[in-house]
């Protein structure tokens, strides 16, 4: 009897712990919407999303986040242009080409890249990458969208490589055998059978990498240049949504319209990353069904 009670108590305790994370998530979402939504009493959703000017401290203020939205997208897309080929090629190399000894060395090293704090990337970017970019492209400043893209790209590589590699390695051997038996060589088999069969997992990896790039804050705050203007080139300073929140939140009056606007940016970010995660999840499911 006593034992059963103990059992029951433990069960409830663990249930409570697991519920807690849901409670926290819910709490965050509620606060986000409660603090952010009131901005739409002063600024319409259209003006907020597509307004070209972000002048939160002017009188009257402008809360158009288009420059920030585009800043985030430019930097994220730039990061993907760098990270997708490198990440996917790395994954193909690790799972299909490398001998097991090399593989056992490279995979943990790439995953280690994910463990470096983003402020270190930012620091590395300010001290090394930015001056280099400035020099090579003869720019007035090295802190711009391009530099941010390079760093975010490096940061997204572990996510993309690791998940893509899992997807490629889980392609059944029987597909490869069938391809070899038809007279295909290793390269043809990799390109025409293995990688297409892993396409679902690779797209998941890319979308999660995109989510990482959009959500990253510290690095872009340090190296993207910080100008809240609509970017026309990769070599312009930009400011992302995340950097805006991080930079301005400390200086606003709690409950002011500026404060509300920053929360509203957070809502947009939340919706974007949520969407990416849902798409990634759907792709993973579709992928599993196909390889069943």
């Amino acid at each position: 009897m006593k034992r059963a009670q103990k059992e029951n108590l433990i069960k409830r305790l663990f249930c409570l712990f697991s519920l807690l994370s849901i409670v926290f998530l819910l709490g965050i979402v509620i606060v986000l919407f409660k603090e952010g939504l009131p901005i739409f009493r002063t600024t319409s959703l259209g003006n907020f999303l597509f307004g070209k000017f972000w002048y939160p401290t002017y009188e009257p203020p402008d809360f158009g986040i288009l420059p920030l939205l585009l800043g985030s997208l430019w930097v994220a897309v730039g990061a993907l242009i760098i990270a997708v080929p490198l990440g996917v090629a790395g994954a193909i190399y690790i799972s299909e080409v490398a001998q097991s000894k090399i593989k056992e060395f490279i995979k943990p090293v790439i995953e280690l890249l994910a463990g470096i704090p983003s402020v270190v990337y930012g620091f590395f970017g300010m001290v090394i990458v930015a001056p280099l970019v400035q020099e090579v492209f003869k720019l007035p400043v090295g802190l711009n969208a391009f530099t941010a893209s390079v760093l975010l790209g490096i940061m997204a590589i572990p996510t993309i490589t690791s998940i893509s590699e899992d997807a490629i390695s889980s392609v059944p051997n029987s597909f490869k055998e069938a391809s070899f038996a038809l007279g295909a060589n290793r390269w043809e088999t990799t390109v025409k059978v293995t990688v297409p069969a892993a396409a679902g997992g690779i797209s998941t990896a890319i979308i999660l990498g995109m989510g990482r790039a959009i959500g990253e804050t510290m690095t872009v705050l340090m190296v993207a240049g910080g100008a809240a203007v609509i970017p026309h080139s990769f070599f312009q300073p930009v400011r992302t949504m995340t950097a805006t929140i991080a930079a301005e939140m400390g200086e606003t009056v709690v409950g002011s319209t500026h404060f509300q606007a920053l929360f509203a940016i957070a809502i947009i970010l939340f919706i974007m990353t949520l969407t990416f995660n849902i798409i990634a999840d759907l792709l993973t499911q579709k992928f599993r069904r196909r390889l069943r």
């Binding site: 059944p172 029987s174 597909f175 055998e177 069938a178 391809s179 038996a181 038809l182 007279g183 295909a184 043809e188 025409k192 059978v193 297409p196 069969a197 196909r290 390889l291």
Partner: peptide
């Protein structure tokens, strides 16, 4: 092979694969 192992492609593409390669 022992276990049927068509590629995760269409019926047509499965047969055409060897021809293309």
């Amino acid at each position: 092979f022992q276990k049927s192992n068509p590629f995760p492609k269409s019926i047509f593409e499965n047969v055409a694969y060897g021809l293309k390669i």
